[in-house]
Design a protein around this nucleic acid. Sequence first.
DNA 1: CGTGTGATGTTATCTCATAACACATGCGCC
DNA 2: GGCGCATGTGTTATGAGATAACATCACACG
Lengths: 163, 163
Amino acid sequence: MGHACDHDHDTTALDAVSVRQRISEAEARCQADGERLTAPRRRVLELLIEAGEPMKAYDLIARFGEDGQAAKPPTVYRALEFLERRGLAHRIASISAYVACAEPGSDGDPLHAAAFLICDCCGATQEVTGEQALSLTRAAAAAGYVISHTTIEAHGRCPACPA
Amino acid sequence: MGHACDHDHDTTALDAVSVRQRISEAEARCQADGERLTAPRRRVLELLIEAGEPMKAYDLIARFGEDGQAAKPPTVYRALEFLERRGLAHRIASISAYVACAEPGSDGDPLHAAAFLICDCCGATQEVTGEQALSLTRAAAAAGYVISHTTIEAHGRCPACPA
DNA sequence: CGTGTGATGTTATCTCATAACACATGCGCC
DNA sequence: GGCGCATGTGTTATGAGATAACATCACACG
């Protein structure tokens, strides 16, 4: 998901070694939890980590095959559902996109509340650690709600984009 | 948007008089701002207020005509865009639905940050006034972002739904 | 091994949303 | 008044996002 504006931006893409490292960590976490990071799940996670920014489902579908072959939509959507469930990725509903989780959670965090700052100009998206989300959870509890999942999506312009 | 569960829920639907009153208020606010609450915009707002809960775009489309005739999608989507711009309605991205704003904002509130508590069981959705959103806005400012719009969407089970 | 659970492959389809263009309406201005 | 512009609407068509349903496969467990 890229640029609508014309000037330079920092890239947050990782080198291949770091990508492999993060996947290994994910693999370890899944195994520890008795879950399987199968090939399609692993591949989708790899694409998300490589991108370092939110990706559209159909971009993942298009890039899925090692050789340029596209996947079928359910393959990718099911992998995304799994990654979200395991706290390895997030769905950003307001832009219909998916992103690898910045810091795959401590286990005792079923909510894994995520907050995002999304630049409407260049698409840069930054995950914010969930102080706000936690306070919302408390407020919700006061209202009798049991929160299972919270997303906070703030749209605006990032520091690198023209006013 | 209704029930997935089987037990009773309070309804928040308004009587016809209250609906007309809220539309009149919206009309007045638009006129004061030099905006026009035209027929299709008024009709969509009316449907949202009558429903008293989030509605899908295509449900609005289906119910648009006074006589049961459906509207064309752009008619409704354009009205929704206007209502959102004027702070009269909100889009809830995580469920692809739209809801009338609980308290159409004070004018000096361009962000009109909205927080929602959404019950995944019965669909009951409650708008929360934006304390959390404001604190997020401050955090974002510290990061150099200029926030134009924030949505907070907390999913879970409302007090009336079974555990 | 056999069996059951969970994951995947495949086809088809459904829902959500917008592009593009023609026409209409309101309104300020000379 | 009538011209011209900006804004809003009607209409057709299509693009993008997501899932249902069902057959098949793979793996852990007894």
